[in-house]
Design a binder for these strands. Structure first.
Lengths: 327, 327
DNA sequence: GGAGCGAATCGAAACGTTTCTATAAAACTG
DNA sequence: CAGTTTTATAGAAACGTTTCGATTCGCTCC
């Protein structure tokens, strides 16, 4: 592996001269620079990242942490981040798994975007206190040195509730997500507020975990208890799909007729299932872009505001008017 | 940021002693070790990755390169890699983008898994020659120091052709993928062989790029030319979905009746579209696990064989018997 | 009780860069 | 042309580790 030293020897100059030349400093003559560059390329020289970041105290790498890679959920988000970062001199890497948390304190990353419940709030605050640059997407920390780009979960859940109401639904289930999740809390909160505003509303909470399979489990219970048309608000689309699967495979109930379903996230699949899943949409791409923009600002030491991503309703035939008379 | 030096000062020992203690060397007394460990944790010490890998000449990070993050294609693969690597002391990061190629020669990674057409064969061979550890998933390099885990593309395409044949289809389209792609070449080759074996077969090649949108473009042409039931072999599912969308939205032709479609990959969506897409399945998870296993072996300097991933047919109602009489 | 030994610890070099300061030569001054 | 400034290059320290080869110390042994 060739180093700056080899180039220096070959060119008959000192290593400092080589370093200056490689970094395009005007201190070195054009000829010398040219000669050094030529030799460097002949020797296939590539700087050693570790050595460089040891000295420079930065790596030019930023990381994004996701709970897991599966699901079709993250593609757009990553695309947004990647596109934004492309204009900068930062490289993006995607990290997942408890193990890889280490890259933050070990200073492999110049900054990180966190959408990963496996970090605890305390952990993140501690990292930030030690000077690591973070943007969080899945929690509200209100910590001076951490930035956050949040989804307008409340608005989304409210849209969903209004949509159910508008179609005459009064009795409904909510399939929740991971207990600790900020998004879940926010969405649930909005549901409760809607119920307070409309006392004729009545709902049952079923515990889910944002995975398809927990939608299936909920479906089982809903079918067991079924005696009249009901609505279901799934706190994410993935579980709604699970619900679809189970209802279709193990019951004669019809979605959009006996069971009315609305989800959250507008994942790609939502438009392919039959009937089209009603859901809440937001631009994941924009979310990613905004998050990376914030992160770069933080790294550069600029002041930033907390941002919020707006949401909208996507109508779907999975929710229709409830027949005036039930049973 | 606290370093080994701070600990040494605090503990009143030399930095070498601290280093030994932190690395659990038996050279240091248990008491001293305990004292040092305590101080280290009080000071929130975390080793500086760059310094360490500079000295150790390894980073304990392995990377996987993907052409892009979008699409639902990679989730399972990544899961497989992640699961396998979890037992090791290596961390996984996902990289994408021309820019991030640099991490290989810059020695940020101890090894890489490549499923990314944006690398050229020459580039990869050059890297391998310089001693970087690589496993490639999307090409056949037959280079002593690069390993590969390949899909049995030919078997897959042959299965698909047989399936069409069995249902009486004689005239069909093939929607191809990116020109340079190894997978595409292999799949196309198998198609040609099938045609040679069955001279009554006849096909038209349409160029695609593995993206949904190119399936739509192909659909347009197929519909324009339509005069009797045809079959279409899409070289991946993503394009098949595009084909579905266009046919449903802009024609009155029925999939599985006028247009018979088979794909490749068995992505999650394939089971949700109506009618279910016939396709070729293989275990992405296993692919990922095998690739990482190979990579770790290479890194450890052990000999490895090239492996192959087997495929199977998934029947779907997107292909049915061709009516005996056409038009 | 000094030689020899093993155990615990230390000092220093090294990894590959960057960058500050020093030095020598060249280019200006008046 | 002696004195000063500028320019090109060299030397060396530093970044935070690891690790090799000392050094010190308390023992045992004859």
């Amino acid at each position: 592996m060739t180093s700056i030293k080899d180039i220096a020897r070959e060119a008959g100059v000192s290593i400092s001269t080589v370093s200056y030349a490689l970094n395009g400093s005007s201190k070195v003559t054009e000829e010398t620079t040219a000669r050094i560059l030529k030799i460097a390329s002949e020797l296939n020289y590539v700087p050693h990242a570790a050595a460089r970041s040891l000295k420079r105290k930065q790596s030019n790498i930023i990381g994004i942490y996701l709970t897991d890679f599966s699901g079709n959920f993250y593609g757009e988000l990553l695309q947004g981040v990647k596109e934004f970062l492309h204009q900068s001199h930062y490289d993006l890497i995607v990290c997942s798994g408890l193990h890889s948390h280490r890259m933050i304190p070990e200073r492999i990353l110049d900054g990180a975007i966190i959408l990963d419940e496996t970090f605890s709030d305390e952990q993140l605050i501690a990292y930030a206190d030690q000077g690591h640059k973070l943007v969080v997407l899945d929690r509200e920390l209100n910590q001076a040195n951490i930035n956050q780009v949040l989804l307008d979960n409340k608005a989304g859940a409210t849209l969903a509730m209004d949509f159910l109401l508008k179609h005459g639904h009064r009795k409904f289930y909510v399939i929740t997500g991971p207990k600790g999740s900020y998004d879940v809390k926010q969405r649930l909160h909005a549901v409760k507020q809607a119920v307070e505003r409309n006392p004729q509303l009545e709902y049952i909470e079923l515990e889910g975990d944002f995975e398809k399979q927990s939608g299936e489990a909920a479906a089982k219970q809903i079918i067991d208890e079924y005696n009249q048309p009901v609505a279901v608000f799934c706190l994410n689309d993935e579980m709604a799909i699970g619900l679809y699967n189970y209802v279709k495979d193990y019951s004669s109930l019809i979605i959009g007729q006996h069971i009315h379903i609305i989800g959250f996230d507008n994942i790609e699949l939502a438009q392919y299932v039959q009937p089209r899943l009603a859901t809440i949409d937001y631009s994941m791409r924009k979310w990613g872009a905004l998050a990376s923009e914030q992160l770069l600002k933080i790294i550069a030491g600029k002041p930033v505001d907390h941002e919020r991503i707006y949401v909208s309703l996507v109508e779907g035939e999975s929710v229709t008017n409830r027949p005036a008379l039930s049973l």
